[in-house]
Design a protein around this nucleic acid. Structure first.
Length: 645
DNA sequence: GTCGCCCGCGCC
DNA sequence: AAAAGGCGCGGGCGAC
């Protein structure tokens, strides 16, 4: 470990460091992690008061180390100094470190940052000609977030083949553990095989931000916040996958047996599901009906005199017919079976942990997506299997009515902020006399956020517009921008994509001289569609930014808590699950109260960080529940639950 | 046999 | 009368 101390000695002992990691001469084809693999560390700053100025400093140290030493060097340096680790993609570097027991406090994910900066309207003044020009080495590259097989079927096949073959058993370290995103799986051909100059990209990005700070300091500040939050999220995504969500196989199997009946032959329906299928066949007089076949089912429904155009539940439920109840129940259970049944359990739950892959910024708005196991749509009906370990607790935290609150803050709509002063913003709308019931408040607010125009929303919208002109003005302006093909931007600077060529062609066709009513109507409809997208983009995306800032605060505070108590990783509270506006922390029972305090403090910090001018640390109240089972937390099915969007 | 699309529905 | 933003994913089924 001589190189460890050498790096430290070579950079003084105080101040923040920026350390860029890359592989000299990396053309993407090398087998990362192989013997003889070399990692280059470029140390860019030690004296700057703030690491935000790091790009200003030149290279103060550069050395190459054996890849096998990397974890030790990183752990040492991150423990003793404030370091921002810079790498092409967190998914490419961090899983191996975490697997080896090394975690870092902060990083800068060049690819995620680049995606934000290249699209951002806030960054445009500093980069009018797009100095961060398209570069296939970066831009045709997913960063390694989605390297593994993404479907339950693929995962199951992998697990089974590994079990059947001693050779494959050796090839896959942990055959039942989903491949870690970004592990040595070669990136896709094309972009992945091109060299990426990490130090150069870091300098370009910093130079852009410095230039922007000169003319638009507010924009530069927002983007720096966003890049830091995005990168912190990338670290969290890797750690979340590694740690996994505690998930009890036995409890889940009991749930399945209770709801679906006993599992029979693989491929055959379990008993209760089969009985429902038989009941449906009997009622419809269709002994060979396969209720999983939509065309067949539709045919039989019509043959029975039911005037339906689809087999969707909402259409079925409007019918008065004896088949509706068993068929709806069949569909509900068949859905559970296919999405979260035994095959899903075998593929995604190992050693009582559910380990999905999270993909930061997998959604254009900046929300995360997930690959594998449908992690972000974990049904409420199976959440009882999510159990804290013996002697531990789950701290389940939800940001209450986040999106309307973020909209109120962004638009600085004092009336809407006032309505949100209590814990229940919807109740606040009723108390203010804007709408008569809480249900109306909710429907109306959803229409504001999503652009709904139907039935009850049409009645409520004018009232909301009158009461909250600034909030309504913000989303309406975003919608108008989208309708005319423009770009909108979130609070911290993530911009929406421009509409695609097909959309533009549709609009162009409508303005042709010979355009008919059909073209015009279609163009208007597509324009309104895009307007609803941009309307929602600014709110959903800005809310996602608040959540990232919140999550980053929680993550760092949990690290401090572990440090203060001298806890090893397996004894310390960990982030266990992340769901758009909800966090689950798995914590030793005695530390759960402190975790509850941490999530509250982080929420207040996030609100101040994003909206310092409002002086409203209580902008986003939290629902905190300390439980043994995830099912103890209110879902939409339980009374009083909120079915929050 | 494989691929890609559609439908439908789970989550926020 | 159908209906509103963002996703992932499985089964069926037609195209190849």
């Amino acid at each position: 470990m001589g190189s460890t101390s050498a790096v430290i000695e070579g950079t003084g002992s105080a101040g923040a460091l920026v350390v860029v990691l890359d592989r000299p001469g990396d053309d993407g084809s090398a087998d990362r992690g192989a013997d003889g693999d070399v990692v280059r560390l470029t140390v860019l700053s030690s004296s700057a008061a703030s690491d935000e100025d790091a790009g200003e400093a030149g290279v103060i140290d550069e050395r190459e180390i054996d890849a096998r030493e990397l974890a030790g060097v990183v752990a040492d340096l991150d423990r003793t100094r404030q370091v921002r680790w810079v790498w092409d993609s967190t998914a490419a570097w961090y899983p191996d470190l975490v697997a080896g027991g090394t975690r870092v406090a902060r990083c800068h994910d060049l690819r995620l940052a680049r995606m934000i900066l290249r699209g951002s309207e806030l960054a445009r003044p500093a980069d009018p000609g797009s100095a961060l020009s398209a570069d296939p080495a970066w831009d045709d590259w997913d960063g390694g977030w989605a390297a593994g097989p993404e479907s339950t079927a693929a995962r199951l096949a992998l697990a089974q083949s590994a079990q059947e073959s001693p050779f494959l058993q050796d090839a896959f370290d942990l055959p039942l553990d989903p491949p870690v995103a970004g592990e040595s799986v070669p990136a896709e051909p094309g972009g992945g095989a091109l060299a990426r100059d990490a130090a150069g990209e870091w300098r370009r990005q910093q130079s852009l931000l410095r230039a922007l700070a000169g003319t638009h300091p507010g924009s530069a500040h927002r983007l720096r916040l966003l890049l830091a939050a995005e990168s912190s999220g990338a670290l969290a995504a890797v750690e979340l996958h590694h740690d996994g969500l505690p998930f009890r196989r036995d409890v889940h199997e009991r749930t399945l047996a209770d709801l679906l009946g006993e599992r029979s032959q693989p491929g055959a329906r379990p008993s209760r599901l089969e009985a429902l299928a038989a009941e449906v066949r009997g009622i419809l007089g269709a002994p060979t009906l396969n209720p999983d076949s939509l065309p067949h089912l539709l045919r039989e429904l019509r043959r029975n005199g039911l005037d339906v155009s689809s087999t969707s539940r909402w259409e079925l439920e409007s019918l008065d017919h004896p088949v509706v109840a068993p068929l709806t129940e069949y569909k509900r259970l068949a859905r559970l079976m296919s999405a979260n049944g035994w095959a899903w359990l075998d593929a995604w739950v190992a050693e009582d942990r559910f380990r999905p892959d999270y993909v930061p910024a997998g959604v254009v708005t900046g929300r995360w997506s997930s690959r594998g196991g449908g992690a972000l749509s974990l049904p409420h009906v199976i959440r009882d299997a999510v159990r804290a370990r013996e002697g531990w607790r789950l701290v389940v935290v939800d940001a209450a009515q986040l999106e309307p609150r973020i909209l109120a803050a962004m638009s600085r709509d004092e009336a809407m902020l006032a309505a949100g002063e209590g814990h229940d913003l919807y109740g606040g709308l009723v108390d203010a006399g804007v709408v008569d019931t809480r249900a109306h408040a909710k429907v109306g607010m959803l229409a504001v956020l999503y652009g709904g125009t139907s039935g009850s929303a049409a009645v409520l919208l004018p009232r909301l517009a009158r009461a909250y002109p600034r909030a309504m003005g913000l989303v309406d302006a975003a919608a108008r921008t989208g309708e005319s093909g423009g770009i909108v931007t979130t609070w911290l600077g993530r911009s929406s994509p421009a509409p695609g060529p097909e959309w533009r062609a549709t609009q162009a066709a409508a303005s042709d001289v010979g355009a008919g009513a059909a073209e015009e109507s279609r163009a208007r409809s597509r324009a309104r569609d895009w307007g609803r997208f941009t309307r929602n983009f600014v709110v959903q995306g800005s809310a996602a930014e608040w959540v990232l800032a919140w999550q980053a605060g929680v993550r760092l505070a949990l690290r401090r808590l572990a440090g203060d108590h001298g806890l090893g990783h397996d004894e310390a509270p960990q982030l266990a699950f992340f769901l758009h506006d909800e966090l689950v922390v798995h914590a030793p029972r005695e530390l759960a109260p402190q975790v509850a305090v941490i999530v509250e403090e982080a929420a207040r910090a996030a609100s101040v960080l994003l909206f310092p001018h409002l002086d409203l640390p209580g902008l986003v109240p939290l629902d905190v529940a300390v439980v043994d089972s995830y099912a103890e937390v209110d879902g939409p099915a339980s009374t009083g639950g909120d079915a929050e969007v």
